[in-house]
Design a protein around this nucleic acid. Structure first.
Lengths: 212, 212
DNA sequence: GTCTATAGGTCGATAGAC
DNA sequence: GTCTATCGACCTATAGAC
């Protein structure tokens, strides 16, 4: 009995994952409004009715995809933190500023790979739905907290402009994660991904102006 | 005859303007997808059918609003250019970098006033429609050209990081004109518009990192 | 005021596992 | 035979277009 139910649950998990992967790609390529639930079902290889057994609305689909990226971001951040801890014990501490840069680069890489889902900034229904989505909010807050620690440390140690509100720095990092500039440079087809990441990271932290 | 027809044309212009103003505000507040043509007609104070006599599609409405902002941007840029010319003749030249900063501040101010229409980055139909809209493309190119002159000058004179492709700088300025960070800071309600503009301009040109 | 297409959301028939 | 997962077909509201 338990094994039967466990197998069913496994199958269900697999189908859920197929859906989330499809949603992630569609959100990354077409955006929320242009994405239709029919497309999601088709790309996940099942009927729309089956999809609606697992997710109750289009908004919930978006929420699940966002939970997915936030989990990946948290895993990356925790990896960085652990590496920094080891490095510190080995006598070569990591600067918080470099951790923030690494996260930024990870986000841009994800975007360049077409794996960064992005939602419309202005959509009150969707925003409301996300804000009442506990799985999403927990991860968003967890990620914000981890980043805020590095931001504050970098400001205290004079690596980040201390006059800026930490909030502004945090928002800026989130905004750069889906910066249209990255997509525009990629579309131009003239630059390598590595080049794009270097440049946009550089403008984010050091600005457009020449070194002073 | 001619006067009657001219009056009709005047009325038509007024109605067109009412529509464009409505579209501009709706695009700035709700975005393209959430904006309905019914709302536009209601806010412009006319029946939807009348609206469709003047604009043949929702995409054309968006195009007209974009032409509107681009015209305002061009007017602002030309004002700056003329002022700089006079100042130069009076012996106090203006740095191209400061011109670019002024344009950035103007764009953020416009956004904070809820007058910056913004379109979804990813919407192939809309993009295609805009790219075949001559009025829009002419102005976009005109604005890009004027900004590119300043960008190149600022790079040659060492005010802007010369290793960055001018294209990247241009894209970044356009992106900052509808930067979500501005909206987020405004929503937090903790800062004045002037403060927000100063901070975001500063991060755009000098970055998040502390002065080197 | 009407038409129509689209897309979010539902339902009942079917099939396969036990 | 029952139970349940699945899916094609369906419904309906909305919004663009005339």
């Amino acid at each position: 009995m338990t094994s039967r139910s466990s197998i069913k649950q496994q199958i269900q998990r697999v189908r859920e994952q197929a859906i989330v992967v499809a949603v992630n790609r569609l959100l990354a390529t077409k955006g929320y409004d242009a994405m239709t639930v029919d497309e999601v079902a088709a790309e996940a290889g099942m009927a729309k009715a089956s999809l609606y057994k697992l997710f109750t609305s289009k908004e919930e689909l978006a929420g699940a995809a966002m939970v997915g990226v936030l989990d990946r971001a948290l895993a990356f951040v925790d990896g960085l933190r652990d590496a920094a801890r080891e490095a510190a014990e080995a006598g070569s501490p990591t600067r918080p500023l470099d951790q923030l840069k690494a996260v930024t680069r990870w986000a841009m890489q994800t975007q360049l790979e077409g794996e960064m889902p992005s939602l419309p900034a202005q959509n009150s229904n969707l925003s409301a739905s996300l804000q009442s989505n506990d799985a999403y909010m927990d991860r968003l807050i967890a990620l914000s907290n981890r980043l805020s620690i590095w931001i504050t440390e970098a400001q205290t140690s004079g690596q980040l402009h201390a006059a800026l509100p930490p909030e502004l720095v945090l928002y800026t990092l989130f905004a750069r994660a889906c910066d249209p500039v990255v997509a525009l440079l990629k579309e131009s087809g003239q630059y390598t991904n590595a080049q794009i990441i270097d440049w946009v990271t550089s403008t984010t932290f050091d600005g457009l102006a020449a070194a002073r």
